[in-house]
Design a protein around this nucleic acid. Structure first.
Length: 404
RNA sequence: GUGGGUGUAGCUCAGUCGGUUAGAGCAUCAGGUUGUGGUUCUGAGGGUCGAGGGUUCGAUUCCCUUCACCCACCCCA
């Protein structure tokens, strides 16, 4: 038997229903916020992710599906969505065109990792990117958009917020942090020793308890922000407070991708395992430049669809299902024609085999039909069909032309 | 990449201290029921006991290897 690849799942039944419900809900809300759908390729040149996500990240370092295509191009299956959208934005020269551009996307992403709860090799993200707006009101808008989506789905969350600073304040801070860790290097775990060399900021979200106790006294980025970053962060938190949106400042919140600056956030949920981030994002004012575009401020986010699938509260009402059955072989044709008409305005199941009256009722009930429609000798004589509402336990006989 | 756990019917799981033909519940199908369903009764189908190798007269059971899934680390949505 051929099986699906490790970490690559099929979506069926309840899961696929939840998936479509998520997409239609998120799409409708994103449009209300002025975002338009964008579709970018799954395969991109490897250099795109090296320059955007960053070589210091594990995603680029060891998790990409990377290969050479038949034209000997070094290509990757996208590990995340932002890089492709920014590439498209620059390629279309929208950076030159100026103005504001807002796009949302959804689709599969690929990371070669060891699967666990909430982590797959092929997973799906819904994301949105806003270009051309430096205002913190846009950061706020993005947060509100996520909040609206999650609450429309009935998904509970906690919002964690941090500021990662900008090219003015981040490098000096990083230096201070490195000095701090190196001063205590004999007390930190092996992973942190490695991180200090590769990507020092990442030590802050180390899960090792003894490291965390130590880092309580580490210099905080929020208290080393430059004037502009500090003012923006203060304004954003003030706006959130004003709007009654609960958040916690997490000075140890670090985004895994190199391109973030200033506002960084994560929506987390309890009870879905160790991988508890259901949405993450922030501002990336420098990324367009990194990808050869004209400097353009931008802010965006991505939601991990699989991670919230089981948290979604599905709406109760379903469109009623009609079961159609005939009692004699020679009436199947007539039954089929009648039932097919009903497909204009209802969900219809047609039974192709003749069955006894009781058997049809039984079958209808088993497949969860609301209505059982049976065609027997009596009905053929009078050009009607017998109809029973299985929920209300009422029945009637309908002329064929009143079926719709 | 590292560590731990689990693989027996479509699903949830028993079981075999190594022994003939591997079980249950649910689900499916047929019948009891030739015009009134849900509850009920009877019966049937469905398994290379994850795969490969070893030990043995004999392995689903013991040993080795491998694969898959789950959970955690790493990392991240």
């Amino acid at each position: 038997m051929i099986q699906s690849l490790r970490g690559m799942n099929d979506l069926f039944d309840d899961e696929s229903r939840r998936f479509s419900f998520f997409i239609s809900t998120a799409t409708a809300i994103a449009k209300r916020y002025g975002f338009e759908y964008i579709q970018t390729p799954i395969l991109e040149e490897t250099a795109l992710f090296k320059r955007s996500v960053g070589e210091s990240s594990d995603i680029v370092g060891k998790e990409m599906y990377r290969f050479q295509d038949k034209g000997e191009n070094d290509v990757c299956m996208r590990p995340e969505g932002t890089a492709g959208v920014v590439r498209a934005f620059v390629q279309k020269k929208l950076d030159r065109a100026g103005g504001k551009h807002r796009y949302f996307y959804y689709g599969p992403m690929f990371r070669y990792e060891r699967p666990q709860k909430g982590r797959l090799r092929q997973f799906h993200q819904f994301g949105a990117e806003s270009f051309g707006t430096a205002s913190v009101y846009e950061d706020l808008t993005v947060l509100l958009l996520i909040r609206d989506i999650l609450s429309a789905l009935g998904v509970g969350y906690r919002l964690k917020l941090n500021s990662l600073g900008c090219p003015t304040c981040m490098p000096p801070y990083r230096e201070k942090l490195v000095n701090f860790v190196q001063a205590h290097v004999e007390h930190v775990c092996e992973d942190c020793k490695r991180r200090v060399e590769l990507n020092p900021i990442r030590v802050l979200d180390c899960k090792n308890e003894s490291c965390q106790i130590l880092y309580k006294n580490a210099p905080k980025l929020v208290s080393h922000l430059c004037e502009s970053c500090d003012a923006d962060f203060a304004k954003l938190t003030q706006l959130l407070t004003q709007m009654g949106i609960a958040f916690e400042i997490d000075t140890h919140l670090v985004r895994g991708l190199d391109y973030y600056s200033k506002t960084a956030f994560e929506f987390v949920s309890d009870g879905i395992g160790a991988q508890n981030a259901i949405a993450g994002g922030g501002r990336y004012d420098r990324l367009v430049e990194f990808l050869d575009g004209k400097a353009t401020p931008a802010v965006g986010f991505a939601i991990g669809i699989e991670r919230i699938l089981e948290l979604i509260q599905m709406p109760q009402g379903t469109t009623p299902l009609y079961y159609f059955g005939a009692m004699q072989e020679e009436h199947i044709d007539t039954l089929f024609m009648l039932a097919q008409q009903k497909r204009q305005n209802a969900r219809v199941h047609i039974e192709y085999e003749p069955r006894s009256f009781a058997k049809h009722l039984n079958n209808a009930q088993k497949i969860g039909a609301h209505f059982c429609m049976i065609l027997g000798e009596n009905e053929i004589q009078s050009q009607t069909i017998w109809a029973k509402n299985l929920v209300q336990n009422s029945e009637s006989t309908l002329p064929w032309d009143e079926l719709l």
